[in-house]
């Protein structure tokens, strides 16, 4: 089985499509980390909220998740912006350990609010294209997976353009690199923080819309992704978008192969071993020390 190149290619490609989701979840985290230098513990819970939003838009409003992106990404941008500006920043006083606690508190609130409002029932949607398969030669890939892969790459490019080609991007990079200096030249640091948090949250909403057709929602679903997103961010180099993108894709492939070699259970270790190796030989991650 392992000598079969078709099988190996199929595994690798599947790993890439799974990695695309990791990359998207990690991208938001990387942005938030890169600019605010905080670890957002509530990231998984935000993903969960976005999944529920997409789920209810579909079941109650008949809105396809891919269409729902148009509403959810801006909506979650605003949500993230407000959250950072009016909850996280004032409560944490900008201290790292307090930010950690605030985001932890938020995740407890979100998770249990979801449990209270929507109960613990597992929810899934059934879209016709989830069963549509695209033959790419070595294997047949579910259409939603291909879409997610494409979207991850697109979002990566879009972010890169945003950071390098726009005034907002320049402001974000300035704040990320030198807070005090940015403030002196007249940039509203609080605003940029909130914008970054909002952008990170919007990407999570996008990830949720791409994930929902092939996955499920429960109040605790975020935890399945949050640890891997942290790992991706470190692997890619803290705060690096390209790093997060490639790190996510790489983790997907590593997970796929270690799953095949060691079994899905022990195979989880593959990701963390890569992580520790990177730590030993390149502690700044693949694309570390670069802010954007």
């Amino acid at each position: 089985m392992l000598a079969d190149p078709v099988f190996l290619l199929a595994v690798a490609f599947n790993g890439l499509t799974v990695g695309a989701i990791y990359a998207l979840v990690a991208l938001g985290l990387a942005l938030i980390y890169g600019v605010l230098h905080i670890i957002n513990f509530a990231h998984g819970s935000l993903l969960m909220l976005a999944l529920y939003a997409a789920f209810f838009l579909f079941t109650l409003g008949g809105v396809d998740p891919y269409v729902a992106v148009l509403a959810l990404a801006p909506g979650f941008f605003v949500f993230g912006y407000l959250l950072q500006r009016f909850v996280i920043a004032p409560i944490s006083f900008g201290r790292d350990t307090n930010v950690l606690l605030v985001t932890l508190g938020l995740s407890i609130i979100f998770d249990n609010l979801a449990l209270y409002l929507w109960t613990s029932t597992t929810r899934t949607i059934n879209v016709p294209y989830a069963q549509t398969y695209v033959d790419i030669g070595v294997t047949a890939v579910a259409l939603p997976r291909l879409v997610a892969l494409g979207a991850a790459l697109l979002v990566g490019v879009a972010f890169w353009l945003l950071m390098t080609r726009t005034d907002l991007g320049k402001a974000i990079r300035a704040v990320a690199r030198e807070r005090q200096g940015a403030r002196i030249v007249g940039i509203s640091v609080e605003h940029i923080f909130a914008v970054s948090f909002g952008l990170g949250t919007a990407v999570v909403a996008l990830a949720a819309c791409l994930l929902l057709p092939t996955f499920y929602v429960t109040p605790t679903v975020g935890y399945a992704f949050v640890l891997i997103a942290f790992t991706t961010v470190v692997l890619g180099g803290m705060g690096s978008f390209i790093g997060a993108l490639l790190g996510g894709l790489l983790l997907g492939v590593v997970e796929a192969f270690s799953g095949v070699l060691l079994g899905e259970s022990l195979g989880q270790i593959g990701i963390f071993l890569i992580f520790i190796l990177v730590l030993l030989f390149r502690p700044t991650g693949f694309f570390g020390q670069r802010v954007a």
Binding site: M1, A10, N14, F215, Y223, I228, A256, G263, E264, S265
Partner: peptide
């Protein structure tokens, strides 16, 4: 005998392995 964690994010590989075996 294939063990998988709870939660597992993706079962495609297990599907592929089953189809190969």
């Amino acid at each position: 005998s294939i063990a998988h964690p709870t939660p597992t994010r993706d079962f495609t590989n297990i599907g592929l392995r089953l189809r190969a075996a």
